[in-house]
Write a protein that binds this DNA or RNA. Structure first.
Lengths: 203, 203
DNA sequence: CCTTTTCCGTAACGGTCGTTACCGTAGCAA
DNA sequence: TTGCTACGGTAACGACCGTTACGGAAAAGG
């Protein structure tokens, strides 16, 4: 048997390169040659690892989702109660000290691409609904007496606020500094009672 | 003197075509040939009306700003008091009945492009700060006793919520229907007292 | 050590992009 | 009506895109 390769490592390497190129030069700069240069190889390897550019794009999108989901899992697991988990999950989504500043940029790029690509749109919807379900679960744990309608409205409002802050901060970080984002989130979370009856996280 | 043309009408025609193409096919589909076809002419006229593609893009961005500013002006002028004006201005920014659905799509497209283009980034910041100033003025009129810090935080939170709703609805209108957006906005506006001391709009 | 088979760098292809040069032509002055 | 000039349609250019074909290199089995 001739030489073999680590397929998964290659795909991750290329997805990371895709992610970096997207953060630096935006969607128009995302070319196979730019990705290959960033990954330290040629387009030959890229086209052997992924059959087409779209497949690479979709895999990079999945990678972004996995990262954010893993961070959210970690934030949730490190919190003792539902209220704290809610604050931690939403807080890590907003810009941290010198956090994943360009993760927001990449997210915006994929979002804009999703508006014209059905496959990317599907990934976006799945990811966002997954995040919504997570927040919904935590809000429901904090506020077991709320009606479903109020739970849904509050959940989607919190998520919209967080994503809005992310998007606006990505384009104008001066106007939306990190401390203001955190303060805005804290104010929005004040509608959630500090010690809900079911304060233990149910998972 | 030989034949002359209506420069402004041409620029508006082409900017509208740019806007439509951007809404339909997104940024990657925005080509001079697509714009020319949509406008019913050839690339020759486009390149005579605008020296370069970027100039066309910037003009289309300005057009988007003028439209949103005019709509906000109208919403504000039609409201008797500051509280109503605030609700109207933010409400028209969120998706109306069968409103400017693709205006959000265009906005997202320009936002993503602004992340990699300094000129577009400048336009975005100017437009967003103008919107922030408008909302800030209305919130301040409703809540004259608030501290500057609270005014700023509330203003930016409201704007972030509205933009977040817009962005998420553009990519997943099923999850973010118009009535939910309006309900979310209404809930967020509940922090503003119904009849503030200075209820008259000061302009 | 040599063969064999997979891997991946190289280079080219067709297509489309933004941009440019050129020229037929439509409208106004005389 | 005639001539002149700015307008704008046509077509080509160079660059770069995604994709493909092919050949040299490298590792595992004999």
């Amino acid at each position: 048997m001739p030489k073999q390769r680590d397929v998964r490592a290659q795909r991750d390497l290329l997805s990371n390169a895709t992610w970096q190129v997207l953060a630096e030069t935006g969607l128009p700069g995302l070319t196979l040659r730019a990705v290959a240069e960033r990954a330290g190889c040629t387009t030959g390897l890229v086209m052997h690892a992924f059959p087409t550019k779209k497949a690479l794009l979709l895999h990079a999108r999945d990678l972004l989702y996995e990262r954010t989901a893993a961070r959210a899992d970690a934030a949730e697991a490190a919190s003792p109660d539902a209220r704290g988990a809610l604050a931690a999950v939403l807080g890590q989504a907003v810009d941290l000290p010198h956090g994943h500043h360009d993760e927001s940029r990449v997210w915006v790029g994929f979002l804009a691409a999703a508006l014209a690509d059905d496959d990317l749109a599907g990934r976006h919807r799945a990811a966002n609904r997954s995040f919504l379900a997570r927040v919904h679960r935590l809000v429901a744990a904090c506020c077991p007496k709320w009606t479903d309608e109020r739970l849904e409205r509050t959940t989607k409002s919190l998520v919209a606020l967080v994503e809005g802050l992310n998007v606006l901060a990505a384009a104008d970080p001066q106007t939306y500094p990190a401390d203001l984002q955190q303060a805005a989130l804290r104010a929005a979370l004040s509608v959630i009672p500090e010690w809900g009856p079911g304060s233990a996280v149910s998972r």
